[in-house]
Amino acid sequence: MSAPVHFRLYVAGTAPHSQRAAANLRAFCAAHLGDRHEIEVIDLFGDPLRALTDKVLLTPTLVVNNSGTIRRIVGDLSETSMLLDFVEGGAT
């Protein structure tokens, strides 16, 4: 059993792109990873300076940590094939 994939999703409050990204991410995890995942959501509207320290200026941004390999993806995650490639690629 591989280690769980860690997802950190930066959102901008209740902005539509951010809302959709959160929903799309959960659906993706449910469909492909089962329990093998952790999701952390950071609302930059609640902690704006985090955008500077973490260098996340575009929202939504997803930072995926798959066993130490890290990928950044911007957008509402409506297109998940690259995400699947990365998660499965890292798992093998």
Binding site: H17, L44, P60, I73, G75, S78
Partner: peptide, 24 residues
């Protein structure tokens, strides 16, 4: 100074906005 260079390996999936930057 704010460093806002998009990283070279940035992947893109669907629409996004500058919300995070403007909040900061």
């Amino acid at each position: 100074f704010i460093d806002a260079q998009p990283s070279y390996d940035l992947l893109q999936s669907g629409p996004f906005d500058l919300g995070g930057m403007l909040a900061a």
